[in-house]
Design a protein around this nucleic acid. Structure first.
Lengths: 121, 121
DNA sequence: GACTTGTTAGTCGGAATCCGATATAACGGA
DNA sequence: TCCGTTATATCGGATTCCGACTAACAAGTC
C-alpha cells in the first residue's frame, strides 16, 4: 500500500472511530466496540455488522492487521476467543492525515457558524 | 423538528461538507459542489448523485430548505435555472453540534497518535 | 447443578448511502 | 454558430451501514 494516504480520505465516522480506538493499543473486536463507546461517552455505538465489515475492509486495504494473541491485558484477562488487531504504519498515516484534515474542517466550521449574522467583511 | 440535534450525529463526510458550505451563505446546488471543492482545496469532490441525494434528505429532515431568491450574487449573475438552499436553524444546530463533537475527536486523536510511537527517542 | 449476565466472534439481509455516467438544456463568449 | 461551462436531475450498480440473530464460553449467583 504505497498509496497516498489522502486517497483514503475522507473516512466515514465508523472507520475513523475504529482506527482511533486502535491507535491507543491493540484490541480485539469486542474491545473496539467498547472503546468506541467509551471514547464517545456512550453517544456512538458500533454494531457488530459495521465493526466486522470495517475490520475486514481495513485489513485487505492494509491499514489494520491481525496480531498474534497477547498474553494478558491490563485487567489480567486472557480469553482464548479473542482476536487482536493493530494499526499498521499505513493505517497510522491515514488516521493522522484524517485528523489533520478534520482540524481544518473544525477551524473553518467554527468561523462559519459564528458568522451567523454576517456583517459583510 | 424538535429532535435532539445529537440524534443526527455523526454526519457522513458528504453531509457535513454540504452543511458547511451552506453555513456561509445560501447557495444553489452547483454552487455547493464548487464551494465544497474550494473549501477542501480540491481534495474532496462531490458528484451530483451524492449532492442531490443529500439535499433531498436534508430537506425532508428539515435541516435545509429551499429559498426563493432571484437576487444577483456577487459576480452579478442571475441564472434563472438556479435553485437556492439555506440552512434552517435546526440545520445550524446540528452542524454546530457536529463541529464540537469533532473537536473532541481531533483533540483525542492527536494525543493518541503521538502517544503511541516513542519507540526510543 | 442450574440460572443469569456479560463476553466474544461472527453471519445475514435489507436499508441507506455513495457516486459516476448519463441526459437535458440554457448560458456566454470566440 | 459552436463550444465549454453552468445548472438541475435521474438512474442503477456498488458500497457501506447496522441491527437482529446465532453460537459459545466465562463468571458469578442461587
Amino acid at each position: 500500500m504505497k498509496d497516498d494516504p489522502a486517497s483514503f480520505l475522507p473516512l466515514s465516522p465508523a472507520t475513523l472511530h475504529i482506527l482511533l480506538a486502535l491507535a491507543g493499543e491493540d484490541l480485539h473486536g469486542y474491545g473496539v466496540m467498547q472503546e468506541v463507546l467509551r471514547q464517545s461517552d456512550g453517544r456512538y455505538k458500533l454494531g457488530p455488522g459495521t465493526l466486522y465489515d470495517n475490520i475486514q475492509r481495513l485489513t485487505t486495504q492494509g491499514l489494520v492487521q491481525e496480531v498474534a494473541r497477547r498474553a494478558v491485558d491490563r485487567t489480567g484477562n486472557d480469553d482464548p476467543r479473542r482476536r487482536y488487531y493493530k494499526l499498521t504504519p499505513d493505517g497510522r498515516g491515514v488516521l493522522s492525515a484524517e485528523i489533520s484534515r478534520l482540524e481544518t474542517v473544525v477551524r473553518d466550521g467554527k468561523l462559519r457558524i459564528q458568522a451567523a449574522k454576517p456583517r459583510r467583511a
